[in-house]
Design a protein around this nucleic acid. Structure first.
Lengths: 343, 343
DNA sequence: ATCTGGCACTCAGATAAAAAGAGTGCTAAG
DNA sequence: CTTAGCACTCTTTTTATCTGAGTGCCAGAT
């Protein structure tokens, strides 16, 4: 593409991102210094339309970027940014106050992000399926009550309190816990669904009854973990401020879509493998109702495995470079935060 | 108030709740069997307007209920309902699958409620300030790592993993945990902010270093618990379907308000003491932005103390009797669910 | 007294026509 | 290849008119 064409495309998109109004040849010339007459600009605009980078909303209106146009803008016409030092400091400060619990940290991050970015933020926690058991702990908290704690390699601990009918003491429980850790440690949480009770009983025959009760409880606990929320969003209201949401039925459609955890889950899952920060512009995100929105996504990776992602969802008209820099760096910070949990 | 007037008021409000359109005298006569002419109805309507139960949106439109009208409708013209047996069964069934963790149970309930009620549901978890410590447990999970578990009387357990620099073994930790439980058990979580270290050291002098580290960690843990989310909402998108939200700027105002955890917290807190299911109609809820909405609230109580509440937020035009019955019963179910945790 | 039919009146909302404005596309000349 | 000029298109805004639901009130009926 010719340099001047690129300039014009870039300026057009930049202006549209700013104003949300179709951009005309006159505006381009007067508002930005482009060294040619409106007529020349018009000619260039025409070819840009023909080539699919821009479109006419109607015969006598300015031009609006197409998905292809945005794509080119992001890939070729934008410089990669990094998170400003000041913002980085601020976020680091915030991380200090977030406590060591990974779940809560990510949930709180969702809020921080939406307040800084002014759009909707979506955070996907590591799903239970991606966690492996690091250790099981059993604590006798009362004569017939046991606190089960399952620690995962990702630092997401899960616990439940269950009643046990048989007699047990703490020593026995510790033995059992050790055995469980030994037998199941390193395995995926999904293995907890059908624990080989017989094997356990063979190892410590005297605890038959306790084993059975515990295994049942762990299975039930695991089941409820599976149905647990792993997607958090914040800042849906932010979107309603944007001119593209003036249309109430469109706003409704998007809002309802954003409340469908399933849809969001698919959205996040579908693109998580890419492993890098990515922008999904308009239709690229694959969700019909969100085809007028863009999604920026940064996966976070623990031990080489992508376990979750953070993202921003906004109008296609967004500051891609800045936001991508933000989530990129944030995902790095998450990874740092999750690392120390590894032992 | 005369019986006929009551009839007319009731019918008017019922019709408005159904159609969301101002109700005229003709509609009242033709659609519902009221034994008098439109002119008579008009006269009655006029006095109802004069007395503040209805209002005119403009000179030549039908009547719309005022807050006072709704109030009268709810208090005097509606019969108390109970949750239908079928629905009750369904909810009980759902509770089975929710796992024993109170937090998760309430979060999941928020979603269930919004799907059944079609409005926005708000659930307030017991705040950390209302919990008392039941027991502390310390588990050595690694040579220098301790898992702290603080169990509350409400069954909301909190935990954190911390690194300890000094040498400890499980036996020591168990002693410490017992001491902590003994010293702090029954006290409010807020007491955890400034634990009397000296006292502890006096009891078990050899653990000075460990104590100090642990107490610091517990303090930090407690701090992060305080900032934790205790309000959950669901179904904000449901509202956008309603005709009262056709106006985008109004919709935006409400949506943004519903994203302000602080505001919601105040809203819930302000009315929690009433101790019974309550309807706050329009302006009664005390939040400026929500003055066109009604809030139905059912507190839930543990050991005679109200610790949280569940509520539905919708347009003033809602089925008060039905929804109040629902949340009333649900709050009872929550209480049942929280009881077994008491020992 | 209370109810009711009749009728003039009000006002929001729909429909239509006209005017304004932004921006294009094309042509012909520089 | 660039640009000024101009006719043309299509949306948006403005203004005017019409329609109809619904009221308020009066005068006569019950």
């Amino acid at each position: 593409m010719k340099t001047r064409q690129q300039d014009i495309l870039k300026t057009t998109i930049a202006d549209f991102i700013y104003t949300a109004e179709p951009v005309g040849s006159k505006t381009l010339q007067s508002k930005y210094k482009i060294n040619c007459s409106p007529a020349t600009i018009r000619n260039e605009l025409k070819t840009l339309v023909d080539e699919g980078y821009l479109e006419h909303v109607h015969t006598s209106s300015g031009r609006v970027p197409t998905d292809k146009g945005y794509r080119y803008f992001v890939d070729k016409l934008s410089e990669k940014q990094t998170m400003p030092a000041q913002e980085e400091l601020w976020f680091k400060e915030q991380f200090q106050h977030m406590g060591s619990n990974i779940q809560d940290m990510l949930i709180q991050l969702t809020e921080l992000m939406s307040s800084v970015m002014d759009y909707t933020t979506i955070v996907m926690l590591p799903s239970i399926f991606q966690e492996s058991l690091k250790a099981a702990h059993l604590v006798l908290v009362d004569i017939d009550t046991v606190l089960i704690t399952l620690m995962s390699t990702l630092g997401m601990n899960h616990q439940a309190v269950v009643n046990i009918s048989g007699d047990v003491n703490q020593e026995d429980l510790t033995k059992i816990a050790n055995l469980l850790t030994h037998k199941l440690g390193g395995q995926s949480f999904s293995a907890l669904d059908n624990i080989d009770v017989d094997y356990l009983i063979k190892e410590l025959p005297s605890y038959k009854g306790v084993f059975e009760e515990l295994v049942l409880s762990i299975g039930k606990m695991n089941e409820s973990l599976k149905s647990q929320k792993s997607i958090y969003t914040k800042g849906k209201g932010n979107m309603l401020r944007l001119p593209e949401f003036e249309n109430i039925s469109y706003a409704r459609e998007v809002m309802e879509c954003l409340e469908e955890t399933k849809v969001l889950h698919q959205l996040m899952q579908r693109h998580i493998d890419t492993g890098t920060v990515e922008a999904f512009i308009g239709g690229e995100n694959g969700v019909e109702s969100l085809s007028q929105c863009s999604v920026l996504m940064a996966p976070y990776t623990v031990e080489g495995k992508t376990v979750g992602s953070i993202s921003v969802l906004g109008p296609k008209r967004m500051d891609y470079a800045r936001l991508m820099a933000l989530i990129h760096r944030l995902s790095g910070m998450i990874e740092d935060q999750m690392k120390p949990q590894e032992v």
